[in-house]
Each structure stands twice: as C-alpha cells, then as structure tokens.
C-alpha cells in the first residue's frame, strides 16, 4: 500500500538539496510515527521516493512522492499530523492512500514552470513573445549537453525542440522581471531542465541572461495518456 502525496517547496527552502529533502521527510515520518515500510537488510531505511527531483534553487507548488506503508492510513489524519511537523514552506497539499500502483516517477512526463528573469535590454514582453514564437518555429534547436560516460564527460548535441511543449510570455512583474510559463518534458523518455531552455533561448535570441539570477518555480507535474495530459492526484 502507498500514500501518494503532493507537496510544496517554497521560498528559501528551494535551497534544500534532494538529499536534504529526503532526510527532512524521513525525520518527519519518524516524528509522527507513520507506519512506513523499511527496506530489508543490515541498514534498514524507510521506503519512499520523490519523483522528478528539483534542481537546487527552484521553488515548487507541486511535487509528488510515493510512501510505502504497512497498513492503511486515514489521509486526513496523516495530512493534519505531517503538516504540523513539516516547515511552513514544505507542506503536503493533497494525498491519497492507494493499493500498489505504477510508481509516480514512471508516469510523470511533463513539468510546467514559471520563470522570471531580468532583461538587460528594454524589450517589451510583446516583442519578446513574438521572437520566442518564431524561435520555436525553427526546424530544430541544438543544445550541447555534457554527459557522463564512465569517468569522462562527453559533449553531445541534442535537438531540444521536441522537449518543449510551449513557452508563453505572461508579462512583467512588480520588479520589472519578465514572467514566462513553459511546459517541458520530464522523466526517462526525454528531459529538459528550465535552465537549459533559458540557456538556449538566451543564446539564440541574444538575451544575455545571467543564468544564476533566474527565478524559477515549478507549478505542476503531469502524466499523459494519448494526447491528453492530466494531474496524477
């Protein structure tokens, strides 16, 4: 049996690494005495997995994890107790107790992001929007990625265009940052990080962006069936 849970990762807690996050949940489950399943072996550890781990520095409104449990748990009680021990910026917003399912990591294929950035030029959102549309209309967008092959790192060129679902310019925020939304492929069958999208965009559209200063937030994660994408919870 599993609990499938959706949670947030906001504000400064975007600086927690994936490993820090796992430890946080581990301690929180211990604190509320959740009947979690432990792995067999000499050094038993609690069994749960977080899907599509975020890179350091990205906020999220919508993360998923599966927690293996040994007995049925009332979801409302679970939510109430776990959210008391979790920090305000990491809260479980929805959960379901399910019989064994395909793992959450295996079904998620799309991620939806909000990205904010500062433009050096005084370009209007409208003009940027049309330039982006034109860019996405090209036949391919090549990005060089470093991949580990054994101990060596090998540069490979890939076409990222099929990994981009859409890019929508929303406008400007109060700090005069450009705000965009974008749907990007995630998971084992193709995966692109928002920073990689921005790296390619900055290069091809001459935006001259400081990639360390992007403010990125994941808004949703989706599974897909045929041509439809849907939220797993």
């Amino acid at each position: 049996m599993i609990i499938r849970a959706r949670f947030t990762k906001r504000n400064y807690l975007k600086y927690l690494s994936h490993l820090d996050l796992i430890r946080l949940f581990q301690r929180s489950f211990t604190a509320i005495k959740l009947p979690i399943k432990y792995s067999q072996g000499f050094n038993p550890h609690p069994k749960f997995s977080i899907a599509a781990p975020l890179s350091l520095g990205i906020e999220s409104e919508c993360e998923y994890m599966d927690i293996e449990i040994t007995e049925y748990v009332k979801v409302d009680d679970f939510l109430e107790s776990i959210n008391k021990v979790l920090p305000d910026d990491i809260q479980i917003t929805n959960a379901l107790c399910l019989e064994k399912e395909t793992s959450i990591s295996a079904i998620l294929t799309w991620a939806f992001y909000e990205i904010k950035f500062e433009l050096n030029s005084k370009e209007e959102p409208k003009s940027l929007s049309s330039r982006i549309d034109e860019w996405l209309g090209s036949s391919e967008i090549i990005l060089t990625r470093l991949k580990k092959k054994g101990k060596k790192k090998v540069a490979t060129d890939i076409n990222i265009l099929p990994l981009i679902g859409n890019v929508i310019v929303k406008g400007c925020d109060e700090n005069n940052y450009i705000v965009i939304n974008t749907l990007l492929k995630t998971g084992q069958n193709g995966n692109i990080k928002p920073v990689q999208l921005m790296e390619a965009m900055s290069r091809d559209l001459d935006l001259n962006l400081d990639l360390d200063s992007l403010l990125i937030k994941r808004l949703a994660l989706y599974a897909e069936e045929g041509k439809n994408i849907y939220s797993p919870l």
Binding site: Y12, L13, Y15, L16, S17, D20, R27, L56, G57, V85, P87, D89, D212, S213
Partner: peptide, 14 residues
Amino acid sequence: MKVEKPARYIGMEK
C-alpha cells in the same frame, strides 16, 4: 544561487 550548500545560510530549521 552561486555558492556551495546554500542551505547553510538560510536558517528556518525545525
């Protein structure tokens, strides 16, 4: 965003 282990500098622990 530029430093190693930024969580050293944020506080907000339990």
